[in-house]
């Protein structure tokens, strides 16, 4: 049976690219903006590009916040990408203070405007950067990253970054001029990627394939 992935449509501009990557990897895709489709999904993907407040407003307008939380409580696989990952946390400081979905404890804050050497660096953080294990522990066995190794590069484009409250939810980091940026978060059935697996070449697609087939 072809695995069925439900992608939440709340106006995110990378939706079609995510759908294309899922289909390329063999999934049957349902694009949904109805609460009942979301809560009854087999596996759910939350895409996203753009501002945090706009993203949350889009979910709220379509009455998808509670169904989305309800889905995650059931324990089925959930993947958030970029803004979709940031919205999994409690709140963000992007253009004012905004509440997130609160699926994983933590905040979203601005990427420091300079490296640890004090030199200013370009914001947004755009480009390929290498995944690393978080400082405390790390090992991607049994996760969507199990085919990846530290040092594999993924494509990032963002100005804000996630800071999970518990280190155990930090799945991967990357380094931006000495500043440690959270590249992925995970708690049980829920995974979030700051980078874009759908735009990260064949290695990125291994994450999508794993999401389609994980049990």
């Amino acid at each position: 049976m072809t695995p069925k992935i439900t992608v939440i449509d709340y106006g995110a501009s990378n939706l079609l690219n995510v759908v294309r990557a899922l289909e390329h990897c063999g999934a049957e895709v349902v694009v949904a903006d109805q609460p009942e489709t979301v809560i009854n999904a087999d596996r759910l993907l939350l895409p996203g590009v753009g501002a945090f407040a706009d993203g949350m407003a889009g979910l709220k307008e379509k009455k998808l916040i509670e169904p989305l939380k309800g889905f995650c409580r059931k324990g089925n696989p959930f993947l958030g990408i970029c803004l979709g990952m940031q919205m999994m946390l409690d709140s963000s400081d992007e253009f004012g203070h905004h509440e997130g979905l609160g699926l994983i404890a933590g905040q979203v804050i601005q990427i420091p405007a300079q490296g640890t050497n004090g030199e200013p660096h370009k914001i947004p953080h755009i480009g390929w950067n290498e995944l690393r294990y978080p400082e405390k522990g790390g090992n991607w066995d049994g996760t969507l990253f199990y085919k990846l190794s530290p040092g594999n590069s993924m494509y990032f484009v963002h100005s804000f970054m996630a800071v999970p409250s518990n280190d155990r939810h930090r799945m991967a980091n990357c380094d931006y001029d000495g500043q440690s940026i959270c590249a992925a978060i995970r708690s049980e059935n829920m995974t979030g990627c700051q980078f874009h697996p759908e735009k990260s070449g064949e290695l990125g697609l291994t994450i999508i394939k794993e999401f389609i087939h994980i049990h």
Binding site: A21, H24, Y155, H196, E198, K199, G201, E202, L205
Partner: peptide
């Protein structure tokens, strides 16, 4: 193109 190309 984007059917087979998965980079920006």
């Amino acid at each position: 193109t984007v059917e087979n190309v998965f980079i920006p």
